[in-house]
Structure formats: C-alpha cells, structure tokens
Design a protein around this nucleic acid. Structure first.
Lengths: 202, 202, 202, 202
DNA sequence: GATGAATGAGTCTTCATTCAT
DNA sequence: GATGAATGAAGACTCATTCAT
C-alpha cells in the first residue's frame, strides 16, 4: 500500500501545552470549536488553560488577536502537514493523490481545528492582515497543477477552477466523514481521488 | 442558449420587507453578514429594521431563535430556487447541469446569504432542531444521482461521495467568484460542469 | 445691612433628583467629592442613585463624559448664582463686593461642589471642550473691573492680575472656612473685601 | 535689582535620579502630572524609572504610600526654597515681598509639581497623616505677618485672613502664568506685590 | 400591537501586588 | 537587592430581555 498510515481513532490537539501561551491556544481552540466565539469567554479560556485571567493578556493583546493568531498557527501547521508525504520522484498523479489524501486525513484527524477554521475563515473577526498571511490550504496543489497544464494534461480551464475540483470535494468529504454521514477508508479515498483526477484531465 | 439568464449585477436581498417580521429578518441578515453574530446587537437590528427593540420579541422568542429562523428561511428559499429551471423531460446530464449552474448563480446572486449560511452552518448557534430541518442544498442532486446509479452510469461509489463531486466544486467556485479571484460566466460554468460530470461517470 | 442672607448651616446639593439623570449627577457629585474619581466606581454611583448600572449609560456615554457634564453643570449654576444679587444701580465698589461675597457664600454653601471643581479643574479628566465651555467663575468680575480701569480707578496692572486680587483671596477664604480654620460671618466678609478693594485701587 | 535672578526657561524636575528610590519618585511625578493618578499604572512608573515592577515595593509599601511620600517631599523642598532669599536684616515689607516672589517663581519653575500638589491637596488619596505633616506653603508668611500685627501695621483681621491676601493671589498668578494667560516678569511681580501689601496694611 | 427606557448579569480588560528566580 | 511573569479581584461598559405606557 502506498498510502501512508491509518486513520487516527482518538482525536488530539495540534497544540501540546508546555508553555502558558500554548495552553491558552489549546484551550481556546477546544472551547471555541465547541461553543463558538461568543460562547467562549476569556474567563472560560483561562480556567480551561489553568491560567490566571490576566495571563492571557501577556501573550495576546486582546481576544481578537488571540483568535487571529490561533487561526494562523493552525493554518501553518496544516499546510506543513500536507507536504510531509510528498515525493518529487513520483508521477504527477501520484503526488496529487498523496497531497489530496493527506488533506482529508488532516481534516479528519483534527476536526476541532477544521470546525474552527471553517467558522472563522469568512468571519469579520479575522483581520485583513490575517487573511493576507494565511497560506491557503489549497496552495500545495497549485504548483503541481501548473505542471499538468504545461504538459497539456488537463482541461482548458483556469488554474483556480481546476484546483476547485480537488479542494472542493476534499473539504466536503472530510466534513461528511466527521459528521458520520460517510465512513472513509484508504480504499475509498483512492477511488474517490480517481473521480477528482477525471474531473481535471482531458 | 440552454442556460437560463444572465448574472445579476446588483445584489439584492432575498427578503423584501412589507411586514415587521420580514423587516427584522432582512435587517438581521444584512447586519450579521457584515458584522457577525456578536457584532450585531438587538438594538442595531431594531434600528436597521426601523422597529422598536421590544417588537422583535413579538416575532422571535430570542436572538438565538431569530438566527435559527433566518437560517431556515434562507435555506428553503435557496433550495426552491434550484429547481426552478429543472425540466424532467431533459436528459439526466442536462438536468444535473441546470441544477448545478442554478446553485452557483444563486450563491453569487446572494453573497450575504451565502456568507451567513457558511458562518452558521457548523456553528453552535444552530439548534439541533434547525440542523435537522435544514433541507440540505445538495439534496436536489440526490434523486438524479440515484437514477444514474441505477442506470450503471456512475462510478461505484456511495451516493454521498458522488454528490460531493457536484456540491464541493460548486460551493468553492461561487466563493472564489464572490471574492473576485475568478470571474465566472455561462460558458465557463458549462465547461466546469463537464469536469464534475467526468468525476462521477465511469 | 446691605449684605444678603445668612450662612446656611446644613449643606445641600445643587442637584435635586426627580429624573434619573439628575439622580446620577447628584450621586456622582457626592461620591466623587468624598472618594475621588478613581475611588468611585460606576457600580457605586448606580447604587447611590438607586438606578441600574446600565441606566447611567443612557444619559452619559462614559464615566469621563459623566464627570465632564457634572463639571459644566456645577460651573453654570455657580456662575448664575453670583449675579443674583447684582444691581447695576449700585456703585462699582458695592457691586464688586456683592459678587465677591456671593462667590464665597456659594462656595461655602456647596463644599462638595467646590471640592469637586478644585479636584478636576486642572485634571486630565476634563476634555478640552469642557475647559473651553466652562464659564470661568471669575468672569463676572471682568466687566466691572474693566469699568474701573477706564475710570482710572485702579492700579496700572493688567486686568487678569487685578482679577486675581479678588478671586485668589475669595477662594482661599472659602476653603479655610470649610476646613474650620477660620469662621467667616458677614461682618468679616465686608472687612475682608475692603482689603481686596485696597489691593486693586490706586 | 533687589529681586533675585531671572525666570527659568527650561523646566526641570526637583528630583535628580541617582538612587532607584529617587528615580521612582521622579517618574511618578512626571507621569502623574501628565496623566493623573488613575492614568498612571505602577507598570508605567517602573518603565519610566527603568526599574523592575517589584522594585518599587522595596521603597514604597503601596501606590498610595508612594503618592503620599511624593507629596510630602515636594512640599518640603518647596517650603525650603521660599526662605532661601530671606534676609532678617531687611524691612518687613521687603522680606514679605521676597518670600512672595520666591513662591510664585517656585511654582512657575516647577509646574508639574504645582499641578501635582493642586490635584492632590484636597484629594482623598492623601492620608490624614500626610495632611498633618505637610508644612503649609503659606506658613513662611505667618511669622512675618505676626510681627506686623504686633506693630499695628495691618488691618484688624485675623492672621489667617491676612495671609490669604498674600497666598491667594500668588497661587492664582502662578497658575495664570503657567497657563499662558498672563506673562509675569520681575517688574510686574513687584507691582503686583504692592497690591497685596495694600490689601493687608491699614 | 408597538415602543423604548430600564435593568443587571456578564463581558473584556486592567493593574496593584506577589513571589520564585 | 532586583526582577518581571503571573495572578485575580475589580472596573467600565454592553446588551439581551422585560414591561409599563
């Protein structure tokens, strides 16, 4: 099997607390993904992080800044994870498949992070600066798709539309899996990717 | 041209105020899509709707109920719009294309509504009851996809996964268009649908 | 006796509460003159005024605004009181004496108001706008002093300095009386005014 | 010229930092005269004094104690300065004039100190003990005025009232000069003192 | 039915003070 | 002695909701 690993069965956080700052980020993610932004007070975060209320403000100037920094850190870690299994020696199709599968597995492994990102991706809480800095998760696909376009492999459509055929189903599939509407496994993912591949190729 | 209509150029609300209740819903949608839930106070809604603060409570028991009802009404109107151009005399592919294009155009025509739905679709504000009642926008695809499965037209994948190949790209394309990352027109939509169709067919 | 009235023995507030707004002003004056600005919380004011905490904000946008408006209202009422006993038929000296005595009596009658004004007259709490709008209490002297200057009655000193010979001692005398270091009565005031008069005349 | 010196043109602090304690006092005076008591946090003082936050508490038990000690030190230094130019060989009038001019010049030279003292002189921050210990700045006048009373030189008024004719105008003149409403110079001060002298003499 | 003044619980945030290093 | 990270009590202010008119 050339697809890495199995599905995690116990959810864990991306953030492992050893500093107070990390404890706050971890607590914030947990509470916000459960209760939403306005259902999560700073007092709740402080309690969950086992930290004084004022301590949060040593690390984050305000609740808004806290959310923004959390958003960025998650995005960065997610993006990094996507490329972990990339291997430039493989075929274009194989590489796209690896990234695509990694993306879905990452979403599934960290549902709180996904819920958080979905909730705030288009929200007014995110500052313009944050929106600018967020490395779009669909970005890793870009380079590979550009190669395929040059090779005349793909449909004559703008890159941004082609990418949509990869990213759109991936996101929806992960959400459906998390919501228990479907149950994904490695075989199903490989078969599903075949659909995406068909969508973009001539 | 077998694709209905053109793109609306001026955005309008789904809600036309003639009753106080509708005025409140319309005001809520506008304010929340701009300022988010917790950036929108009942006082702001009352002012925007040109209604007394207490009046809102004649029609909605609480702010949460207001959000939930707004969510449901938007979903229902959106879903209804999708089937407007459906014609059971057409081919399966043609019918799917019509629905798919309608969905994207609907999203594009009502970006505030889309933003609102995306923001609250997975949010804790929505009661279980609301989540149950929301007729999934991807539902109109279901019946047609089932027909195709029976006819042996599609890949051997669960219905829920096949639907993902239609709904996922549609949602992403609309969002990209609204964000001005791409500019969709009727021709591009038809070509794009071809990709989706390739994704699901054998 | 040409000097009006007697000394009040029981202190009362300038503000008689019949509206919530007035109740808040009255409570604020009392508490701030006793405990100072930062020793007086909005909660304390609300309690003293027998009003909900939020109610204060219907009438005053912030604590700062509350202080500023209180300051202005006191100044205005004080200034008005000074001219109550003025009579343009009297001699210049007589008129100055009346105003001067009124000023001291006003201070003595409303020590809380005086303490409040002294505390905030040069404080950073007062906005530039307030400082501009405050009708200077020493102003009533100005016109009369100008008359005297034209008549060649006074020393050759700038008006602002002459006024100082009236206002400076008046303020200090009132403060000393309130602090029980001296006990003023009408006779003593008349004699004291003679000193002030000597200070400004040739 | 029998009047000492000229007007300082550059303001300087009474406190020259060479110990941490002095640095804290100096920083406190600067910040409080600019931002007021509750606009000045211990953290701000520590930063301005280039000292750790905890260090302040080695020298001052609390913020209140810090303010009180600052108040006392300023009063003492001011009072000492008044008698610097006193010469018991001079005439009573001359000696009073020297003290009176010194007082005004001192105020003008140290406007931050004056603002600070005015702000807290009647404030609830000052402990009873501090109020008792503060050597009243008008005190230096007392002894000389008593001499004049014995000599039958002055009006038949209580000492405390006579002193008011000296101190009241002095304070107001200094404040007006600092506020740029008037511009004092040595000649104007001498002429102004003549008014004060007339106010107290028969 | 409609209004909006009034409420007070709850919010984010500040800051004097402590204490381990 | 000196530091500054950590604390949590207390503050100003907001806002969903009520209710007398």
């Amino acid at each position: 099997m050339n697809i890495h690993s199995v599905f995690r069965t116990t959810y864990m956080s991306l953030f492992q607390a050893d500093t107070k700052r990390t404890a706050v980020l971890k607590a914030t993610l947990k509470l916000i993904s459960e209760h939403g932004f306005h259902g999560t007070s700073m007092a709740m975060i402080a309690a969950e992080a086992k930290v004084g209320a004022g301590t949060i403000y040593r690390y984050f100037a305000s609740k808004d800044v806290l959310i923004n920094e959390l958003f960025i850190e998650i995005k960065e870690q997610f993006t990094a994870a996507l490329l972990e299994h990339d291997d430039s020696n493989m075929s274009l199709q194989q590489r796209l498949q690896n990234i695509w599968v990694s993306l879905i597995k990452q979403y599934i492994a960290y549902p709180a992070e996904l819920r958080f990102m979905e909730q705030y991706a288009n929200s007014p809480f995110l500052s313009q600066d944050t929106l600018r800095r967020q490395s779009e998760l669909s970005a890793p696909f870009t380079e590979l798709l550009e190669q395929g376009i040059k090779m005349g492999l793909f449909r004559e459509l703008p890159l941004d539309i082609l990418r949509t055929f990869m990213y759109g189903p991936a996101l929806q599939l992960a959400k459906q899996h998390i919501a228990d509407f479907i149950v994904l496994d490695d075989a199903l993912l490989v078969d599903s990717f075949a659909g995406c591949w068909a969508a973009i190729t001539r």
